[in-house]
Design a protein around this nucleic acid. Structure first.
Lengths: 248, 248
DNA sequence: CGATGCCTTGACCAACCTCAAGTGGCGTGG
DNA sequence: CCACGCCACTTGAGGTTGGTCAAGGCATCG
């Protein structure tokens, strides 16, 4: 199941220090690293520490000093915020090539992040990373572009959380997963849901029961078919896009 | 009413080209411009066009080519997104010193923005603005910091829209306004609501009726008192913060 | 002084939540 | 190999919050 989330032909020796790990990284062309030339990668490699997290393990904790940033090289991470009484909002799922650590206040991480599936990340000390900006202004420029994209996505999500009903939310979620799969040259009709219904609910501002019922409605309407608990086949992406409001 | 939103002692000649408008700008120390030395301001002044918008007038339209960025020097702006059927989510209210134009895709503005009150803005062509980055890297760095803050705020808002009930949302909204007032050295107990109930509803993911009812509940509980339709006195900020979940 | 726009309030309704029971896959241990 | 327990998910019944529809109040403005 996890393999289907990963990019095909991912190099297994990506973190072997002798061979220049970054140069062989499968997500090299997708992550922020892509702005650096091959010859510039040693500067990045010098400050990167590969880490692994098992499902449920924390990557960062709300309130921790925000000392690191991360690049996800494999697996799925969820980022979230809590209310004092435990209510949770998942602000985003992060997949390979995604960057973690953008939104941050002076007071430390304003959110938590933990592994959904077994995940591999490149950990970089924030100060080390920012020290590269002077040498590689394009890195900073890329980060700004990334922040802008994130911001646009965040606003999409406000629209979803503030104004969409359950059906529209779930449809939007599925369309997003399908589009991501397509971008990674994977079949956009066979979507994997590595996260639990509870996670999806906390992402969409619903309860797990409503998510489950909504999947059933979509199944009954023929838009989707369940293959396994975590695998969904999309029969009618157009119908889903229609529900999602054509915004993506 | 508008005056109470504005910074005290704002220089009226802020856009007089002969005197170096930016140097005399009341919000100079608050906006992104603050990273530039006085001697560097001419580069900024050369590309700035002051504009004025009456209440309800558009600043940017969803889908327009995103050719400009803006600094708000006076008044209040709302940024929003629409669903095809007209449902609206206000993603943010922008006040003086705030920057407009961060979140943007290649396809143009992903949101609309229009004046809530009469507003004054510094309009800057995007290409002109970004051309300054090479000369003033600190400007870009400031923008990145701004984007990060925005992102953190956006995530707060997801938590609000996804997981808070109406009372918590309105309380959070009021606390935010009070804190902003305090930051501008204005009485934090007398809060002005320049926007309509409909705007507040679209901002909080509620209906105008629910917003109105919630104000009434807060009034009945003694936490707030209505002075005028757009003025609210906060009697018990601690109670509001408590409802808001201590996140601000 | 009437018209208009915005807000408040009430009655009713529906979407979603809560609580609860039941299903099915999977791993473990007898 | 099968029984069991566990966990995630599904489904149902009923309740609650907030939405919908409608009426009325109260400023401002011509």
């Amino acid at each position: 199941m996890l393999d289907r989330v990963s990019v095909k032909n991912r190099c297994t020796s990506q973190h072997d220090p002798r061979t220049g790990p970054c140069a062989h990284c499968a997500i090299r062309s997708l992550a922020i690293c892509s702005v650096l030339q091959d010859t510039e990668l040693d500067a990045l490699e010098a400050i990167v520490t590969p880490i692994v997290r098992e499902p449920g393990q924390a990557v960062v904790r709300e309130g921790d000093r925000s000392s690191h940033v991360f690049n996800i090289t494999a697996g799925v991470i969820k980022a979230f915020k809590h209310l004092p009484d435990g209510r949770r909002q998942i602000t985003g799922f992060l997949f390979e090539a995604d960057f973690l650590g953008l939104a941050v206040g002076d007071e430390g991480y304003t959110y938590g992040a933990e592994a959904v599936t077994k995940a591999e990340l490149c950990q970089i000390r924030r100060t080390d990373f920012e020290a590269l900006f002077d040498r590689f202004p394009k890195l900073e420029r890329r980060l700004l572009a990334l922040a802008r994209d994130e911001l646009a996505i965040a606003q999409e999500k406000m629209l979803l959380l503030g104004r969409m009903d359950a059906l529209e939310r779930v449809a939007t979620f599925l369309v997003g997963l399908a589009d991501r799969a397509a971008r990674f040259d994977m079949p956009a009709t066979d979507v994997v849901l590595p996260m639990t219904r509870t996670d999806i609910a906390d992402y969409l501002g619903l309860t797990l029961e409503t998510v489950s019922r909504t999947f059933s409605r979509l199944r009954n309407s023929g838009s989707i078919a369940s293959v396994g608990r975590q695998d969904i086949r999309i029969n009618n992406i157009a119908a889903l896009r229609d529900l999602a409001g054509a915004t993506g």
